[in-house]
């Protein structure tokens, strides 16, 4: 079907870098990593500080994937 108003190249969001996104999805669900009290950090038991630290993992990964795929895929 003729679609003259559409860009000729096939766009895609596929990229091997996208697989990195699996890490911050799986790691926060591994209870065994954080289900304990020692060691404590600033008075926080491990259960609390480690799960809060996963936020950094999430931010870091999504930022990285965005930057790596910005030019090629969209």
């Amino acid at each position: 079907m003729a679609q003259p108003d559409r860009p000729p190249t096939q766009r895609t969001d596929r990229s091997p870098w996208n697989w990195l996104l699996v890490i911050p999805i799986v790691v926060p669900l591994l209870v065994v990593l954080y289900n304990g009290k020692a060691p404590t950090l600033f008075g926080f038991p491990r259960f609390y500080w480690l799960q809060l630290a996963f936020i950094i993992l999430g931010v870091g990964t999504t930022t990285l994937v965005y930057q790596l795929t910005k030019k090629t895929g969209r």
């Binding site: 969001d13 996208n18 996104l21 699996v22 890490i23 911050p24 999805i25 926060p28 669900l29 799960q51 809060l52 996963f54 936020i55 993992l57 999430g58 990964t61 999504t62 994937v65 965005y66």
Partner: peptide, 14 residues
């Protein structure tokens, strides 16, 4: 609520 709101963003990124 914390792991919930961490994993959500990489899950829906694409």
């Amino acid at each position: 609520a914390v792991p919930y709101t961490v994993i959500i963003y990489p899950m829906v990124f694409l």
